[in-house]
Simulated scan of single mutants.
Amino acid sequence: MSSITELPPSPSEPGQPTGVLTLPGMPGVVDQVALAKLYGEPLFAMPQDLYIPPDALQVFLEAFEGPLDLLLYLIRKQNFNILDIPMAAVTRQYLVYVDEIRSTNLELAAEYLLMAAMLIEIKSRMLLPPKKVAGGQEAEDPRAELVRRLLEYEQIKLAAHKLNEIPQYGRDFLRAQVYVEQALQPRFPDVTVVDLQEAWRDIVKRAKLVQHHVISREELSVREHMSIVLRKLQGRKFVEFEHLFDPARGMPVLVVTFIALLELSKEGLTDVTQAEAYAPIYVRLAYTPA
């Protein structure tokens, strides 16, 4: 498929504006000799077997996002000042595009024809004498509203282009997924120091409810109470933490029993665990593999 090339005006065609599209059947002169350049090489004669599909320009127009996009392309392509648009040249070039698709795709050409009518209206208003405005102020340029729309559209288009450059999930990168095989044996949550403190406070609170006022001296052995705790755990899978204490024997025995339990855990003879967070705490004999 041949492409449509923009050619500068020939010296022999002074009426042709700068940047006017040269379509098949409308040859122009480039560098005073060649009609056009094909892949960087000068083309001195129109090929006899040149074929341009009827919808070639239609496909080209569908690349634009609307009339404002096409109009902005024509202005920026020829380095026109957007604040001082040469309406005659831009309108003439714009109509070249629209005329090619009006007969083949009316639905696509409808919105482009509306913009063409607006360009012609603006050019007509520019040819008329400016209206007098009260207060001696100058009349607004007929192109002002079009310029505002073009500038707003260009800002939005640039912002959309910058957003499109941001890496997007599914287009530029994918989420990494790693399969971690879980152990078949359930692992109970570890008991923290805070959990032990809360359980100990609860034991002390209930011990205060059964106090004796008999003052006596009793020698208590941590090793002896370690053996007592081990005997209570012997042959049992789990024992609830609070069942290892006897509040009726008083605070000294509770303290020694708690120290004995800590020593057993420190030496690795017992395990302190719980089924889940905030669940009751259980004590069991440490598991020793055969």
Rank of each mutant, 00 (worst) to 15 (best):
Q182L: 12
Q211D: 05
T257R: 15
R217A: 07
Q234D: 11
E181P: 05
K232F: 09
P247N: 12
F241Q: 05
R171K: 07
D172R: 04
L184P: 02
F238K: 07
P186K: 03
E240K: 15
F173P: 00
L220Q: 02
P189W: 03
V210C: 07
F188L: 14
R217H: 11
Y179V: 10
L230C: 08
H212Y: 07
K162V: 10
K208Y: 03
K205V: 12
L244I: 00
Q185V: 15
Q182I: 09
K162I: 13
V204N: 06
G170R: 03
L174W: 06
F245G: 01
T257I: 01
P252K: 02
L163V: 08
Q168R: 15
R187H: 11
R236M: 11
V180I: 11
H243W: 13
E219L: 08
R206Y: 12
Q168K: 15
M226Q: 14
V193E: 15
V256E: 00
L174S: 09
R175H: 11
L233H: 03
P186A: 03
E240S: 13
P189G: 01
Y169F: 15
F241Y: 14
G170M: 13
F245I: 02
L220H: 10
A207R: 04
V194A: 14
V255P: 06
A199C: 04
V253Q: 13
T192I: 03
V255R: 10
R206W: 09
Q197Y: 14
L244K: 05
K208N: 05
F238N: 08
E165W: 07
I228F: 10
S227C: 05
E224T: 03
L254A: 09
I215E: 14
H212D: 13
R223F: 15
F245H: 05
Q182H: 03
P167S: 00
T257P: 01
V222H: 02
R217P: 03
T192D: 11
E218I: 07
V256M: 02
E240A: 13
D202I: 06
R187P: 01
V222G: 07
F188K: 14
Q168H: 15
